[in-house]
Simulated scan of single mutants.
Amino acid sequence: MGSQDMEPLRKCVFLVMTFLGMLRTVDGFKNVALGKPASMNAYREGNPPSAAVDGDNTTFIHLPSGPLAPISWWEVDLLRTYYIVSVSITNRGCCDTRLRNFTIDLISDHLSASPTTRLCHFYPGSIGKYVTEVIACDDLLTAQKVRVTKKGHLDFSEVSIKALPACGGLQFTLNLGIRRLDTALRQLVVDSTTMCAIHCREEIDCDAFQTLTSATNVTCQLLVGQNGNTVTDNNWKYYHLAE
């Protein structure tokens, strides 16, 4: 890759590093859902889908009166692709047994003719009145849309999504059950796969990384290049920069 080809990549890395530097002084990641376009399968007049991303915990979404659809859903379009770090849901001050047993799904970018939907997390149990639950995705995933789905009635006050922009070619592709054998650029212990990806993006020479997850932490190996000897190892997950 020539120096001219590398320039957009360096610029993107610089922007990401600058962004991360600012975020680390203000409690992690900003809420990328605030004020973004929202939709749902049906809603009651006065309780539109936008109420869940208006930054006001006194407003809420609500389905219309009458028979309910078998599955209810609410969705926000983040307008660009992000690494989703966490999804926070705040329940309204009513019906604390209603917001229960729901699924958070992530949907790929709108340019695809057949968008990919992947599971972020299934939340079992209930969220109490006025309670905010912070929910981390089960794996490092990118998405443009985030959807909340459950059987029966669906209502809540607010959704906040903390995320990191996935710019240009700096999106990672997951390869399950594969481990690279070459010497790591750097090995460290982090608290999540997302943090491993962030460390890789901060290293200009890092083109891939692999993780080994335990009950308490994640072993993170940063790798140079996207080619190397690999073996099948179901304990590891290998990520490389998308083409």
Rank of each mutant, 00 (worst) to 15 (best):
M6Q: 15
P8W: 07
K11W: 07
C12Y: 08
C12K: 11
L15F: 10
V16D: 08
M17T: 15
L23T: 15
R24I: 14
V26D: 12
V26Y: 12
G28D: 02
K30G: 14
A33R: 00
A33L: 10
L34A: 13
G35C: 13
G35L: 12
K36S: 00
N41Y: 05
N41T: 14
A42P: 00
Y43G: 02
Y43F: 10
A51Q: 04
A51G: 06
V53Y: 00
G55L: 04
D56L: 11
D56Y: 10
T58G: 06
T58N: 15
T59R: 01
F60Y: 15
I61R: 01
I61P: 00
H62Y: 14
L63W: 06
P64L: 09
P64D: 01
G66E: 05
G66D: 04
P67W: 03
A69D: 13
A69Q: 10
S72E: 00
E75W: 08
D77S: 09
R80G: 03
T81S: 12
T81F: 03
Y82E: 02
S88T: 05
I89P: 00
T90I: 00
T90K: 06
N91A: 11
R92A: 06
R92M: 04
R98S: 05
R98G: 05
R100W: 02
T103K: 05
T103M: 08
D105E: 15
I107E: 11
I107D: 11
I107M: 07
I107R: 04
S108W: 03
D109K: 09
D109Y: 08
L111D: 13
L111Q: 13
L111C: 07
A113N: 14
A113V: 13
P115V: 01
T117E: 10
R118Q: 13
C120H: 01
C120T: 08
H121R: 15
H121G: 07
Y123P: 02
S126E: 07
K129N: 14
K129C: 08
T132H: 01
I135V: 15
I135D: 08
A136H: 10
C137K: 02
D138N: 14
A143C: 06
A143N: 03
A143P: 00
Q144N: 09
V148W: 01
K151L: 14
V159P: 00
A163S: 05
A163N: 02
G169H: 05
G169A: 12
L170S: 02
N175C: 07
L176Q: 13
L176G: 14
R180L: 13
L181C: 06
L181D: 05
L181Y: 04
D182T: 12
D182V: 10
T183H: 11
Q187C: 13
Q187A: 14
L188C: 11
L188N: 15
V189K: 14
T193S: 04
C200K: 01
D207G: 09
D207R: 04
A208E: 06
F209I: 03
S214D: 08
T219W: 01
Q221H: 14
Q221W: 05
L222I: 09
G225F: 03
G228Q: 09
G228M: 09
G228V: 08
N229S: 15
V231C: 07
T232C: 10
N235V: 04
W236A: 02
H240T: 13
